[in-house]
């Protein structure tokens, strides 16, 4: 089903929805030195900007950077506000990233009640990308930036026209005010955009998952990670990085993001650190995304959103790293993993 709106109708729609739902969407935050676009709860639809990919991922709505654990028992999530949220304008890369988080936190054997609660309380409206930024490489990893059916509703914007493609009829009631649209018109947009994304200067021919032993013991990690400073920027901006640590303060337990880039991440109480140097830590990050997670869950844990290289203080580019891995594996005789 397709629903269509112009910007005025969209505003009315969001105003109406905001009576029953909290609405979060990308907004421009101009504070300090850098202009940032971030997902925030909004007061009025006028704040929303769909111009480009937001600078930080929406994972904070599902895995807050600092979440208080109300009860220290698994399966007892907090008593926080249960009002449902509509998360508006999530692009393909971030939608795919949510699947990675789901793999981990909604694993049948170990369901994370806190994550599950956030997940159930948030209705996502996806957004089709109209153009990539220079650091994007989702297409290379097999993700379609133009259309994605993993959100119940997916939005295409062209000029003043907003096309909502409803994938899950259960949520069609959200858009009941809007007139139905024409499938043909939408197909046209999809085709047009697919063409604009077709030319891709970055191609990869990597076995997925990466063969663990060959890649792990490859000699190049020291050179690749030479410039890595060991800050947590790439992991904190990554839509799929989910590692966390616990903190206790005055009897309050909270779960905070942690980063495998920090030396203290793997440090034992004895003082021993199995990942002593930064190249080992950087290797862990790449291997987790391209070898371990695909091995365990059959899905790459990188969506090519490009935020790690946009924000890296030393502009370490994961694409160059992957290229090095690629040529090494080809040299090794095209080892394909089973």
């Amino acid at each position: 089903m397709i629903k269509v709106a112009n910007s005025e109708e969209l505003e009315q729609l969001l105003n109406r929805l905001s009576q029953d739902y909290k609405i979060a969407a990308p907004v421009v935050k101009r504070k300090g030195r850098k202009e940032r676009i971030e997902y925030e709860y909004i007061d009025s639809p006028g704040e929303i900007t769909l111009e480009r990919q937001p600078d930080s991922s929406p994972k904070k709505f599902f895995l807050p950077q600092n979440e208080r654990m109300e009860v220290e028992v698994a399966g007892a999530p907090g008593t926080e506000d249960k009002q449902k949220t509509i998360l508006f304008g999530v692009r393909s890369c971030d939608l795919e990233a949510l699947k990675v988080l789901d793999d981990v936190f909604l694993d049948d054997n170990y369901i994370d009640a806190y994550y599950q609660q956030h997940r159930e309380n948030i209705i996502i409206i996806g957004l089709s990308c109209s153009e990539g930024k220079p650091s994007c490489f989702c297409g290379t990893l097999g993700i379609d930036p133009v259309k994605n059916d993993s959100a119940p509703i997916f939005l295409y914007q062209r000029g003043d026209r907003y096309y909502f493609k409803v994938y899950d009829e259960e949520y069609a009631y959200l858009l009941e005010d809007l007139p139905e649209g024409d499938e043909g018109e939408l197909a046209e947009i999809v085709e047009e955009r697919a063409a604009s994304f077709a030319e891709n200067n970055f191609t990869l021919d990597l076995p997925v998952p990466l063969p663990e032993e060959t890649t792990f013991s490859a000699p190049f990690w020291g050179d690749l990670a030479e410039k890595c400073l060991g800050c947590g920027v790439c992991t904190y901006y990554c839509p799929t990085c989910y590692c966390f640590g616990f903190f206790w303060e005055q009897g309050e337990k909270s779960r905070c993001w942690d980063s495998c880039m920090f030396a203290s991440f793997t440090k034992h109480a004895s003082g021993h650190n199995p990942r002593r140097s930064q190249d080992q830590r950087y290797r862990q990050r790449v291997m987790h995304k391209y070898s371990y997670h695909p091995e365990n869950y059959g899905r790459l844990a990188c969506t090519g959103c490009g935020r790690c290289l946009d924000n890296c203080p030393v502009n370490l580019d994961i694409r160059s790293v992957l290229k090095t891995v690629e040529s090494y594996l080809q040299e090794k005789g095209g080892v394909k993993s089973g």
Binding site: P134, S135, N201, F202, K227, L309, V314, N315, L316, D317, R319, S320, K323
Partner: peptide, 8 residues
């Protein structure tokens, strides 16, 4: 950097 062209 080869792909981004950024200074590194």
């Amino acid at each position: 950097e080869e792909y981004s062209g950024e200074v590194t």
